[in-house]
Design a protein around this nucleic acid. Structure first.
Lengths: 203, 203
DNA sequence: GTCTATAGCCAGATAGAC
DNA sequence: GTCTATCTGGCTATAGAC
């Protein structure tokens, strides 16, 4: 049972790595900074994860596995469409307000390594849009919403929810908001965005 | 008049730097790669721009000065609101399809250096939201659109237009689109997005 | 202005003691 | 498992010839 300390260290490293990689990206991150933040030395990082690349991949997978279920809220649960949009928006924004760097991290590293997506797709919990497409088609048929491509609607939902976090510093500058005002705006979006989307599509 | 060759080289460097910095970011970019792409050697980069940092800043400013007028389309021209939204959406998406890395580059480097925004704000062409706010307030008063915060509407417009390019590889994976299909989707957005927004706000 | 060669530094990785 | 010390390679930057 001498694994107690080991597991703590491994977790400390992963947490520290998450912070540093999410803030600086793969290229900008420094092993020394991760070691400092974890309260250990560089050699130990290599002892546990062998290389920067492998530590990065562990961090990335962990981040993605936190994001994926969030996306599945909009794709694969059983609510009625409008409910789903409201629920997703509220949950997602609340979630990201707690993990502000997460979406940007995932998206950036995928952008720098687009083939990552293929690897992720083979894994168990990669979100699938199939169910959502059926649901949208059915809502259109029932005359609940105006005709719209499911893909376009999905992109719109994600864009409205994700972008404000990714573009935060720029948006803050453009709308002349200080931190407090911007937080208020984000907070308001937990309901505003859903209303906006539903107004856009409802008949 | 022995400046001919010089100006060409300087421009070659800036263009090569733009490509590499936009693809790899400041931290991931290599002076060697920029030199190769410009068809010269590393020493010349330093001859013209002194340091990687300064070359980066020149590149960034150039990129931002191309973006800013695009944003001003939605903020500071004289069209009526719906027209403006349609015009901006079409122009912006067409524009970014030609410079796909640009918005992500600007946003990323601002994220890694949020204080950049303050510097940019002091410069001549930094977009201002004031006029747009007045226009939205007036459209609400006239009963043309439902009540909505101008800031929220602005964020929505930008999100819907910008995010699909930033999140492209991830979105492609999520909606199972190949390159051709995704281009088609983006192309459709030149009109779809404006319709979506207008439907969301019109009374 | 443009090149080759190299200085100098920094970061990832390893050796080896404890 | 954890540490200190060190190797090694790569990258920015400069010196100096042409």
């Amino acid at each position: 049972m001498e694994k107690k300390k080991q597991e703590n260290t491994e977790l400390e490293i992963l947490n520290a790595a998450k912070d540093v990689f999410q803030e600086k990206g793969m290229a900008g991150a420094r092993m020394q900074e991760i070691a400092d933040k974890a309260g250990i030395n560089k050699a130990l990082l290599h002892y546990y994860y062998r290389s920067k690349q492998l530590l990065f991949e562990a961090t990335f997978k962990s981040a993605f596995s936190i994001m994926a279920p969030q996306l599945n809220q909009v794709l694969n649960d059983d609510r009625e469409l409008f409910d789903k949009i409201r629920n997703f928006t509220e949950k997602y924004i609340t979630f990201v307000m707690k993990h502000p760097y997460l979406p940007n991290f995932v998206i950036q590293e995928i952008n720098k390594n687009p083939e990552f997506v293929q690897k992720l797709k083979t894994e168990k919990n990669f979100p699938s849009i199939d169910k959502f497409k059926i649901q949208v088609a059915s809502a259109i048929e029932q005359g609940l919403i105006k005709p719209i491509d499911a893909e376009q609607l999905f992109i719109n939902i994600i864009s409205l929810n994700v972008f404000p976090f990714i573009g935060k510093p720029l948006l803050k500058g453009l709308i002349n908001a200080d931190e407090k005002m911007f937080q208020k705006i984000l907070q308001d979006r937990t309901t505003e965005v859903a209303d906006f989307i539903i107004n856009a599509i409802k008949k």
